[in-house]
């Protein structure tokens, strides 16, 4: 079973993502910001990361950069949560090493579809 790390400073989003992806057959771990996320993956391996952009302590872009510098995470799919009014963030994310993005607000089917789009 694949494990997905969901990183977002909003408890609501974390809960929704966890619930949706668990329902789709994934194991989910959560983190509240970039620092927390790095701690999580130091403890266990995850197969995919979904992260928000704006977070305290360490934002999404910085998290992606740091994750990509870790050998086991060179090729792991990473999705960025972004708003449609910030198209340049998609490019910034890609430049930092993100695989793709999900536009907020999103619903459960969209989330699952995008996850399945980038991960076998």
């Amino acid at each position: 079973m694949k494990t997905i790390l969901a990183v977002d400073d909003s408890a609501t989003i974390r809960q929704m993502v966890a619930f949706t992806l668990q329902g789709a057959g994934y194991e989910v771990v959560v983190a509240g910001d970039g620092v927390d996320a790095l701690k999580q993956i130091a403890g266990r391996h995850v197969d995919m990361i979904i992260t928000d952009l704006n977070m305290p302590n360490m934002n999404g872009i910085e998290l992606i950069r740091q994750v990509r510098s870790l050998a086991p995470y060179k090729f792991v799919p990473i999705l960025l949560l972004t708003t449609e009014s910030a198209p340049e963030k998609k490019q910034e994310g890609k430049a930092a090493g993100a695989t793709g993005w999900i536009v907020k607000p999103f619903d459960a089917p969209q989330l699952v579809a995008t996850v399945q789009k980038v991960m076998r």
């Binding site: 990509r68 695989t99 980038v118 991960m119 076998r120």
Partner: peptide, 14 residues
């Protein structure tokens, strides 16, 4: 391409 975590095989399957 692979460095962004994209997998051509996944794309081709889709």
């Amino acid at each position: 391409m692979l460095f962004s975590g994209n997998d051509p095989v996944v794309l081709l399957t889709e």
